[in-house]
């Protein structure tokens, strides 16, 4: 087997995650889908590291994880805040800018 298959898998997971972002309305689920996309990217990076034979890809994946953690913390805080004031976690309801 060729490790390129990991890349195909990563692409597939990324695409699925993107589809979730586009069709789900629950902010939490959307967030989870974003995490899925990030993880797909990480898988690609790790695979790249393997293909290249050095650790830089893993470093980037590591940083991605850190940034993802930070993002989740802030994002979930925002969701909680919005839910508190609007009693809804649907992204379609947060439409104050809508015409």
């Amino acid at each position: 087997m060729n490790p390129v298959n990991y890349l195909y898998l990563a692409a597939l997971l990324f695409t699925i995650g993107a589809a979730g972002v586009l069709i789900r309305r629950n902010a939490i689920v959307i967030f989870m889908c974003v995490e899925l996309m990030l993880n797909a990217c990480n898988l690609a990076f790790v695979t790249f590291a393997r293909l290249h034979g050095n650790l830089d890809g893993q470093i980037i994946a590591f940083f991605t994880m850190v940034v993802a953690a930070a993002e989740v913390v802030v994002g979930l805080a925002i969701i909680v805040t919005i839910f508190r004031s609007r009693h809804s976690a649907s992204v379609d309801d947060a439409g104050l800018l809508k015409l």
């Binding site: 993107a18 972002v21 586009l22 069709i23 309305r25 992204v91 379609d92 947060a94 439409g95 800018l97 809508k98 015409l99």
Partner: peptide
């Protein structure tokens, strides 16, 4: 097109 739905914009971005 500017319907105010974040998901719509996400589709455009994607």
């Amino acid at each position: 097109l500017q319907n105010g739905y974040a998901r719509s914009y996400a589709v455009s971005m994607f």
